[in-house]
Design a protein around this nucleic acid. Sequence first.
DNA 1: AATGAATGGTATCGATCAAAGACATTTCTG
DNA 2: CAGAAATGTCTTTGATCGATACCATTCATT
Lengths: 343, 343
Amino acid sequence: MVSIKDISVVCGVSVATVSKALNNYKDIGEETKARICQTAREMGYVPNFASKVLKTNRTYNLGVLFKDAAQSGLTHDYFSYVLDSFKETAEDKGYDITFINGRVTGNNRMRYLEHCKYRRFDGVVMACVDFYDPEVLELIRSDIPLVTIDHVYNNRSTVISDNVKGMRDLVQYIYRMGHRRIAYIHGTDSAVTQRRLSSFYKTCEDLGLEVPPEYVREAAYRDTTRAWIRTMELLRLKERPTCILYPDDFAYIGGLNAITESGLKVPDDISTAGYDGIALGKYLAPPLTTLEQDTRRLGMEAANMLINIIEHPKTTLADQILVEGRLFEGGSVKRLPAADGEQ
Amino acid sequence: MVSIKDISVVCGVSVATVSKALNNYKDIGEETKARICQTAREMGYVPNFASKVLKTNRTYNLGVLFKDAAQSGLTHDYFSYVLDSFKETAEDKGYDITFINGRVTGNNRMRYLEHCKYRRFDGVVMACVDFYDPEVLELIRSDIPLVTIDHVYNNRSTVISDNVKGMRDLVQYIYRMGHRRIAYIHGTDSAVTQRRLSSFYKTCEDLGLEVPPEYVREAAYRDTTRAWIRTMELLRLKERPTCILYPDDFAYIGGLNAITESGLKVPDDISTAGYDGIALGKYLAPPLTTLEQDTRRLGMEAANMLINIIEHPKTTLADQILVEGRLFEGGSVKRLPAADGEQ
DNA sequence: AATGAATGGTATCGATCAAAGACATTTCTG
DNA sequence: CAGAAATGTCTTTGATCGATACCATTCATT
């Protein structure tokens, strides 16, 4: 591997001069600079990242922490979109992406924070993690620049999908379609779930809908089996809902199977809606009505926010960006004759 | 940040001794070692990765190159599974994962190889890339330990999904189900496509099936629109096929829509089969018959292979691991009355 | 005196950075 | 106007980041 030392010898200058030439310092002769850069190129010089980091303490590497309950890893169809967009944006600005994990060295395991310190990430983004995990909290409390996605901590910047508005839009739409008996199979407890659930209740209340307790049930995100069970329970109720909301589009598939197996059809016999807007939903028959999260913008905003914190630590206060979703009108919500004269 | 220097001061020993203690050298007193390790822990010592790399030239970081034609990035539903498994395996062995890209620094863009050299990856895995891209070839020809997935190069190790056997299994199954007019919408030209396509022809020939040229058409992988068009073309043929094979499960969705829009039903009016075995396929109605690729094993083998090359460079020759898939019998292939007396 | 175990000294990896030096040019001063 | 001082431009020197590795040293034991 060729180093600046090698270049300095060839060009007959000192290493410092080479370093300056390659880093575009102003106090260097135009001609010398050109000659050095030219030589560097010819010799196939690639800077040594390790020694650079050692001196500058900047890695241009960002850590990504992600670990959902279902262990879906990179195959998570909401997060993988967000991450992809995050990656694109970060790479455009010269940052690389490395995954944070409980790094193994010998027989020791590093905690997340240790791993971040070890790799000297300039910053960290986290999503979908167990936000009460002590290791996660330790990372949050550290002084590493950090952005969370879909979870708010004190003094930490966040990009968050607007679940309150999203759920409201969804419920209002369903209401406008004439539904008055709306059930909600919600995800397990988390900040996201809480926000969606309270928005669900609030919106129903505003619309003058009563929500029988048995209409609200829990099933883990992306858990098709559980969604199947909950759907069956709802279908067996004496007063069956006319529309069921699911934790997410993927879990919905389980619900859809339950409905089909019960000899019912969407949307003729029962209406449904999901949440997320994953690719597959559009191709179901009928296409699933859902609240499409703006994954591109979520990832992009998170990356910009994080890089901003890294590059302007002084001027950046803990901030919060709310990213709105968009209602996707599939065909899974049937228009009912309005129960009380609404259009 | 605490360094071994700090520890050496506290313990009253030299930095060399601390280094030895922390790295489990044998020529060090048990007691001293214990004391040093204890102190290091108490002081919250985390080794400085950069200086370590500078001396040892080992980063324990692997580069991942992935860029498919459709730019699906991390959301690719075959690759994201492979990568996830690769990541798990690598992390278990103490390696981290970073994405390779045309890294941007200032106004220069690094080529893939430069990026790898810069980050000093111990090894590289590549999948789904344009294998004829000059930058990719440059990387292939370099001396960096490297494993490719689903593409064979001279002198480079590969993990490859057994597309020949996969396609054969699929076609034979369809034949056993009584089908004699089988169409194949294949992906665009690539090693994978070639293998599947020639296996398709070969198997048909072995089974004594003639394949009219108009039964074989092309549509890019994951391209639902193109699959829709090709399906429509096939459905309009005078002698319509009884079964259509698709490039992959995702593209199939486009085909399914074409079929539905034509007023036909799967499998009653026409049978279908995909390739890949993505999660969604099982939840379609009927579940899609497909050749499920063993993504877990592909990722795992690739990681093991790569780490093996890195850690035993001498003893490891360029190798090739074939990973078999598994036929998933969904319900999309209808049993037909056997045309010629087979069971 | 020879052996072996434990520990220490120090050059080194490849870059950056502050400070100093070389040299030419401009400005000042008597 | 000559010579000294100051200024500015470009380049070099050498310390430094934190760990490793080789070789040297110390001291107890055989």
